[in-house]
Design a protein around this nucleic acid. Sequence first.
RNA 1: GGGCGCGUGGCUUAGUCAGGAUAUAGCACCGGCCUCCUAAGCCGGUGGUCGGGGGUUCGAAUCCCCCCGCGCCCGCCA
Length: 585
Amino acid sequence: MKVSRRPMTTRPLKAFRDRAASSLARGLRELGTREVGPALEALSLAPEGRGDFAFPCYALARELRKAPAAIAADLVQYTGLPGPFDRVEAAGAYVNFHLRPEALAHSVLSAVLEEKALYGTEPDNGRRVIVEHTSANPNGPFHVGRARNPIIGDAVARLLRSAGFDVETQYYVNDMGKQVAILVWALGRFRPEELPAVEREKPDHDYVRYYQKASPLIETDEGVNEEVQAMLSAYEGGDDTVGERFRRASQHVLDGMEQSLARLNVTVDHFVWESQFVEDGSARAVVDGLKRADCVGEEEGAHFLDLRDRGIHGRDARFFFTRHDGTTLYTTRDIAYHLYKLSHCDLAINVLGEDHKLESRQLAVALELLGSLRLPEVLFYSFVGLPEGKMSTRRNRVVYLDDLIDEAVERAYEEVRKRRSDLDEARMRRIAELVGVGALRYNVIRVQPEKQIVFRWEEALNFEGNSAPFIQYSHARCCSILGKSEGYDRWDAEVLVAPEEAGLARALARYPETVVEAASQRRPHLVAAYAHECAAVLNQFYKSCPVLKAETDALRAARLALVDSSRWVLRNALTVLGIDAPEEM
RNA sequence: GGGCGCGUGGCUUAGUCAGGAUAUAGCACCGGCCUCCUAAGCCGGUGGUCGGGGGUUCGAAUCCCCCCGCGCCCGCCA
């Protein structure tokens, strides 16, 4: 039995909202509202400059037969002034609740300084999640189009972990596919001296040259195509010499790919090999099961499901799950993998490119036909294109991820060197790595996955404004102040009344709800937006509120506590995004 | 032809599922701020018929219908 290791944590805003809600409930009852509970759900965070919580009265107008603004005015009369608030007022059709800034600050600082790295995490909920991401064919290095997958997948995994899920990440290795077969064929056919010079001393970059040389032959040379098909058949038929060659080639390329992932702060908990499901007979069981479906058909020995009546339309709604020789297809083996996956978790999430939408539908139908009660939840992302069109490894029209990382780190190094000549070389390099990689990750995470993006160097290497370095910089500022401060032991939030202080405290307070919301929607970009907002507010505070030179000792201590809290929250948010928080830069 | 997705200032983008207060930020552009805790920063300004047209509603970027543009897919490939 699993023991909950992560304690309950605080949501500072929740307690205040509850206070506002209960006093508002009194007012609503006075006015004769029938459904007070549901009405209260409209009480939400107020927009900037409108206090802390706002309650719109439009929806009550009909029932109470009164103008919304009049209702708001009445509510203010009956609601009174709950303890932590210093103002409750009607503004048009709204009732706005203004918290005493010191009360909010006290609550937030207490929570953050107590919980530190745990602030904004939820207790373990015991739910097991498998996040499958990346799963790129092991036939060459990642290009930047594919980089969206591991970065989104990793961020989702981190986000769900923060939200209390027990998360495992999996990479499904397509070692039985045609791409790998072409690579294996080429490895047996070409000598290194027949190939262009290797661009980077890394196994994936080495092997991709073989793939690229062989790939065009598949279309032009029927003999080559037949040899490749024969190798696939042999592998599936259990020929272990062939199998060994496939697995070795895949693993070799995968080693290189994993290096790239590691540099991006992406770790994969478990690599699951496609061939496993052929070897253990589960792919065969899928075929047998699907053959019993009432919508099954056969054409020259190849089996398919007719999905016309299951919401799949188009020129051809047939989904083939065996070839004419009885061997399985990619999706057939993927079904076996999903049955395995679903039996090992409570929730399966797949991160897939938009080109997999149809396959995903077919897979879902097949799983249902096989009696699966649960289906994977799929997170699709749109392609990253180049200004000149689609990326293609085959055509060698690509920007490799490794080159992009190098470029980002190099750019970051130049920036560090420009402003931190006091640091030694190793330190500058270390910071540049965190900043460069952070900038890349942030640029992928900050936009909704379904938006298509065109890759432009100047955008990918943005270090200002809405970027990771902006957030990291704010964090480093906090660390710098704390480092020079010689600490603080007692603090009292009563002195934190400046608008910048209140604004910062309010931002910090919003973090736990942000994580919960982002996790439940599987949308890490909400955390990215939050982190940027939080950093921006911190910078405003930094500009107008001196900490080390605060007018009084009490103010200095309180501001140090605020800076310390900000540091934790920024760090926690960056961690969810998989971005390191350097203490200096 | 059909299915799915996207369309918000010059560019990028939040908000759209759960309709409400002057539509969010960033880049670029214009003007200020380093004798002061890191200027990867701060302050101010210009710029938007939320693709177009209907409809529902007291109220629509958000919901419904039609249309337009772009992307992806419709293989016994993966």
